[in-house]
Design a protein around this nucleic acid. Sequence first.
DNA 1: CATAATTGTTAGCCAAGGCTAAACTATTTG
DNA 2: CAAATAGTTTAGCCTTGGCTAACAATTATG
Lengths: 161, 161
Amino acid sequence: MSNRDQSLPHTVSGTSNSGDALPPIGEHVRQYETVRNAHETELIEDYVELIGDLIQHRGEARAADIASRMGVSQATVSKMIRRLNELGLVTSKPYRSLFLTEEGQKMAEVSRARHDIVLHFLRALGVNDHTARIDAEGMEHHVSNETLSIMQRFIDQQTQR
Amino acid sequence: MSNRDQSLPHTVSGTSNSGDALPPIGEHVRQYETVRNAHETELIEDYVELIGDLIQHRGEARAADIASRMGVSQATVSKMIRRLNELGLVTSKPYRSLFLTEEGQKMAEVSRARHDIVLHFLRALGVNDHTARIDAEGMEHHVSNETLSIMQRFIDQQTQR
DNA sequence: CATAATTGTTAGCCAAGGCTAAACTATTTG
DNA sequence: CAAATAGTTTAGCCTTGGCTAACAATTATG
Ligand SMILES: [Mn+2]
Ligand SMILES: [Mn+2]
Ligand SMILES: [Mn+2]
Ligand SMILES: [Mn+2]
């Protein structure tokens, strides 16, 4: 299993992390930093997006539904809702269902739009719907606007042809 | 996936999270679960991959280099190395540089191969190299094997034409 | 070769995101 | 309408992944 053999014959197209020298330190740091930053907002975005979806499709967002859809305990959801509250993304009265603030709605919208682009892109690429949904749920938080608009272009090309 | 949807004029290509009913609970849970699982191994993979790269390009992997490339304190790296040790991925003697175990090398290889495919794919798609590197660093951990092999196919098509 | 600089480790702190168990509130139903 | 059920919150625990400060070891240098 050495790494300078022919084990990856097809990836010849250009620069690669394995074949190349390491990136300059500054850029390398920025890569990891960007990922760390994304991870700080990921879960929040997923919650807000889900709350928006529940309101839209079910009329209301209740903590129990969030818990069962996320596959997580109600206690976990309750704690998270307090955080979302402190962040000014939702409003909630005790034992009542949730509402998104203006800011929360904005975030839900942006997140859902991005999520949809990634999902549609994967499907346009030829990925099976089930897999595409799973991959999109994680990928969506790590896709730059530049990549997003290229994905959108790709979707448009694939679908109107 | 459900149908009966006439909203969303531009996203016509198929099912969308926003226009559609919510996914069945079981599948929805699996999406989030997959992301949570990925997040458990992400950092580990990045460390191991970086250690492999440092050994390959610099001859050795020292904690200080890891810290400066990851943009993180030496204490953080030291703590993480203990974990990698416990996981059987690296061997290390105090104040000495690091080595990957068999298992660590395997993980480094797999991670790097996957990372390369994602990076090459983004570049083949038309994403600027700098952006592609940043996006790939996060996306790589959320891409299924199915999607990976479709990406590889895409790369091949783009480059030999 | 003694000291300075660099590198690595340890201790102790913090926030996030999980969990279970127990208490509390609201809703449904006999 | 009282009791049972369902939903929500709180308390307290755990792990991960950051940090700073203090200390220890190694390596470089005058
Ligand atoms: Mn997501
Ligand atoms: Mn992620
Ligand atoms: Mn990587
Ligand atoms: Mn990565």
